Amino acid sequence: MFDPWIITIGSGLALLGAASTLWSIARVFRWRKWKRQAVAWQAFADHNGWSFRATPGAMYGVGVLQMESPNPELPVSLFTEHRGSGNDWHVVTIMRVALGDALPPGMSVKPARLTDKVLRLVGIKDKGEEVGDAALDNMLELKNVPAEMGAVLSRPAIRKLLLTQVRTYTDFSIEAGFLTVELTDVPKTPMELDAFMYPALGLAQALRAMEDRTLPQPSAQPRLQPG
């Protein structure tokens, strides 16, 4: 007759072995998916003359992908980043575009959070929070926006592009001289990369086109570069 403890231990080891096997299979599957993504990013970079780097993770772990545009007039960096842990672990894709001197120092534009909307309902507003456009004021958290820039943001073309950022991306921000957008996913083809970048690049180009017409130009200074 078998000892019940031996049966229990044996069953536990069998379950542990099965779980370890499934974990290994899932890890290899994710690594192969990452490799396919790396191939797509490489193809996009080669086609557009961008620099590209793929850094593999350890032991078939998902790595990170990075691309940068060589265009000094519109510096763009694109990269993936790991977030969370355990069941909450995920990968986000981030694009950062340097805006040069298009915006005044200290100005910040982000999607409105629930707390922002509650503060508006009770009549608590930060200085420079509103620009007088109902859609922008409701959908965005605006801080330190001078009157002349509020007028720029309310122009139909830029207004539409700003609201598109809210609908397209998981998160975005305009601050410290950069437009930064995030997506909780990784584009898997050159076409998906193009679709991911298009709305943000449109807004960045529109803002930089306004640079000469909205702000006094400082003396020659080096442009900010993505970190």
Rank of each mutant, 00 (worst) to 15 (best):
G100L: 08
P75T: 10
L179W: 10
G106L: 10
A206N: 09
P222D: 05
V186S: 00
V152D: 11
K125C: 02
L119E: 02
P4Y: 15
R208A: 02
K127C: 02
V28Q: 08
L179H: 10
E68D: 10
S173K: 04
A206L: 13
M139D: 00
P75C: 14
A40R: 04
K160Y: 08
G61H: 04
Q221F: 14
V28N: 10
R167M: 13
A19L: 11
E141P: 06
P199W: 05
K143A: 08
L119F: 05
Q37H: 03
E175F: 04
L16F: 14
L103E: 13
L162K: 12
K33Y: 01
T80I: 12
A40D: 00
R36K: 00
L103M: 13
R113N: 03
Y60W: 11
L224K: 12
G177Q: 01
V166L: 08
N138Q: 07
A45D: 00
S219T: 15
L65P: 03
Q66C: 01
P156W: 00
L201W: 11
V64Q: 04
Q217Y: 04
T184G: 02
P4H: 14
K143G: 08
F172C: 07
E73D: 03
G17P: 02
M149N: 01
L103D: 15
R223P: 12
P75G: 08
N144D: 00
L65R: 10
V97Y: 01
A209T: 10
V131M: 01
Q42M: 07
F196T: 13
V76E: 08
L78M: 03
M107Q: 05
P190Y: 09
D101Y: 11
N71Y: 13
I25D: 06
L121E: 04
L22G: 02
T214P: 14
V39C: 05
R120G: 07
H82P: 04
I94C: 00
L13Q: 01
P226I: 11
